[in-house]
Nucleic acid binder design. Structure first.
Lengths: 335, 335
DNA sequence: CGAGACGAGGTAATCGATGTCACAGCAGTG
DNA sequence: CACTGCTGTGACATCGATTACCTCGTCTCG
């Protein structure tokens, strides 16, 4: 049944014009008489014509497609980011090609190369590389997410790690906590560094004497976080609250708190996770919404694709505290 | 620095041949003398030539791209499926375009239409529609995931919902449970129906008299699951274990069990979720690995793209029980 | 009244790779 | 020796849409 795909030529023929004129109508060129336009439009509808994106892209030298490069497509955080990008893209009839680097620099290079080869119109990248020299004269707009490219003047959408951490710790303080522990990643990444700085900002900003024994830097993949939490609670002067600097640390710490029946400890997690709102108490988080990051990155990219040329900018995705209980527990057992 | 992209014509010129001959070398046509071949190959390397995928696709009438259509790209389950598909695709130099239906039938139609328009080489679809007539003479191979298309002879990769549910319930029985409750979705989907059947299979297979008061069909989005769990535990003869037929029901039920301090109740969840292995006790699950589903679907699709024509088949992705504790609790409080 | 501007539209080249077909040269064959 | 049959090769058309450039009226204005 499905008839042969109609081509521009068929439309032109049906409308009794040349392909060029048909093309004008389709591309909204106004140098066409109303009458001709109507004929062409009718033909388009009659034949169910839709331009071949491949042919169009070839001629224009640019595909109606954007590429999204992330660590791992299956990572829930990036999955949500991508989901939001796709949501914005589909409204603009743009396809989204995904690729993952698996956190390997050479793969990053390969997938980007492949995307350039395809002449994508734009790229959104969670880069793991430090060296972006090969992107310097990119033929298409780039937007970095999660981490800005420090050696490249390009748009980026990141979160205010330092400010967010400070905000979280201050939230705990507002509920009476003064001894607040930090559990976070080892300092390998900029993200971790900034969050620890934010924690220190809050402590010092409140005039509290910093106590380094309250700062635990762990390897969350090894399950250190729970051990660290237990050690913290055994201190002579234990914390009344814990700030967990990332999701994985939270996932490690919380089972320990439950097991020790210390759900009276104040707790805030930088980063949300499934079940966070179904635990008892539900876990208060600093939300760095992947959707917001995806949306902001896509907005910026599409605005450049539309020809706008805003100054290059590093955009901070909004952070907000989602109070669910664990961060609003009053400080107890104060000596 | 980045010189102009080399075209086939440039290669041909550098090698002193026609474009056609260069094309032959690149496409591995053997009707080329060894000497000419060597010259062309050298030129390809010197110029860093790589064929333009767009032009090639246009000529061939087929893009080196596959489309993946799911409910929601951001859904962790589908994200993992897609991640695995992308992993397989990149090895074959195939790009992956994603699109989501947001569970709306008209969107399914629209995104599929768009992908056809792009002339994707193949499609992997988690269809939500019941009517696939418009896919009947698809121009490219289709593989359904998660749900088979019942009105269409097409490959599908699904899980054995009935068998998996039975397996889960039998696992509980092996730990002494005889009164086992079912908490699951309302019966709108085939998936839910099959899982309830599996539960009944196990109960009857064990010679237990079915007790309908142990079967709770809820609307998990409304938070019914927790309420249902509480009601079950208040029964005169309460269950000693619960089989939760899907992830969302588990997410609803578990906080209730924890709140009631009834973590002694046996529990198995059909479908994994974050924190499942960090709760106390950790949650035993029936794992329907999204990676396996993605891999199987991609394998099937690529084998068809490679020209193989295996008979159309509905493939069952493997299911396995991941014992973590909650499913291995011995039955207690037996009257 | 002639010139230039402008509106509406057409012709042919082009994007880059590949399919069709023709052709030259040489080997084998009856 | 004429003929068929390969082998290696290239010229040219083609995929479908867009762009550069041109034509032909008609309108306006000096």
């Amino acid at each position: 049944m499905k008839q042969q795909r109609a081509r521009l030529r068929d439309v032109a023929e049906a409308a009794g014009t040349s392909t060029k004129t048909a093309s004008r109508v389709i591309n909204g060129d106004d140098r066409v008489s109303a009458e001709t336009r109507a004929r062409v439009e009718k033909a388009v509808i009659d034949l169910g014509y839709r331009p071949d994106p491949l042919a169009r892209s070839l001629r224009r030298g640019l595909d109606e497609t954007i590429g999204v490069v992330v660590d791992e497509v299956g990572d829930p955080f990036f999955a949500s980011v991508i989901g939001e990008i796709e949501r914005m893209a589909i409204d603009r009839d743009v396809s989204v090609i995904i690729a993952s680097t698996r956190r390997r620099e050479e793969r990053e290079r390969i997938v980007l190369d492949g995307l350039y080869q395809r002449r994508v119109a734009g790229l959104i990248i969670a880069s793991i590389s430090d060296n972006h020299a090969y992107l310097r004269n990119s033929s298409c707009p780039l937007v970095f997410i999660d981490r800005a490219a420090e050696d490249l003047a390009a748009d980026a959408v990141v979160v205010d790690d330092r400010g967010g951490a400070r905000m979280a710790v201050e939230h705990l303080m507002r509920h009476g906590h003064r001894r607040i522990a930090y559990i976070g990643d080892r300092l390998s990444t900029a993200t971790a560094r900034h969050r620890l700085l934010g924690y220190r900002d809050a402590i010092e900003g409140a005039g509290i004497v910093p106590d380094e024994s309250l700062v635990a830097q762990v390897e969350p993949a090894k399950g250190d976080a729970g051990v660290a939490a237990e050690a913290l609670l055994r201190l002579p002067e234990p914390p009344t609250a814990i700030f967990s600097a990332n999701t994985r640390c939270s996932l490690g710490t919380l089972p320990t708190l439950h097991r020790l029946r210390r759900t009276d400890i104040g707790f805030i997690s930088f980063g949300d996770f499934a079940m966070a709102d179904t635990l008892t108490p539900a876990i208060t988080i600093v939300d760095h919404s992947p959707e917001a990051i995806g949306r902001l990155a896509a907005e910026r990219l599409f605005s450049r694709l539309a020809g706008e040329e805003p100054p290059v900018e590093t955009i901070l995705a909004p952070l907000r505290i989602v109070a669910r209980g664990s961060g609003e527990l009053a400080a107890v057992g104060k000596p």
